[in-house]
Design a binder for these strands. Sequence first.
DNA 1: GCACTGACAAGGT
DNA 2: AACCTTGCCAGTG
Length: 111
Amino acid sequence: MNDFFDMVYQVVRLIPQGRVTSYGAIARLLGTGQSARMVGWAMNKSHTQPVYVPAHRVVNSQGLLTGKHHFGNPMAMQELLESEGIRIENDQVTGFKNVFWDPQKELKTED
DNA sequence: GCACTGACAAGGT
DNA sequence: AACCTTGCCAGTG
């Protein structure tokens, strides 16, 4: 796998600090559309990648920290996001639309 | 090779 | 608005 998964990691790595994006947004960017699950699946094995992938900046379409259990410590994801200036309330990103980083919009000129 | 699972999303009831 | 169903695709048992 050097196509889909690597693309996902690349996009996730491009997420600026203090911003978040959704699995579906990445999926649509890659053209997989409905296969948002594969993005999450890619995140699961992101730890196998040679480079660090800020998976904590990826949340679901509701802004919920659905994958926080996969960080070893469930609150690690929230801690990381809050460290970047993102406010979390009840496992949800407050002002989600304000911190949402749309790859399709930001990377519109990507090659 | 079939079946189940999984960090999701959208649509219907 | 809450809950249920379908789609999707790769990995593992």
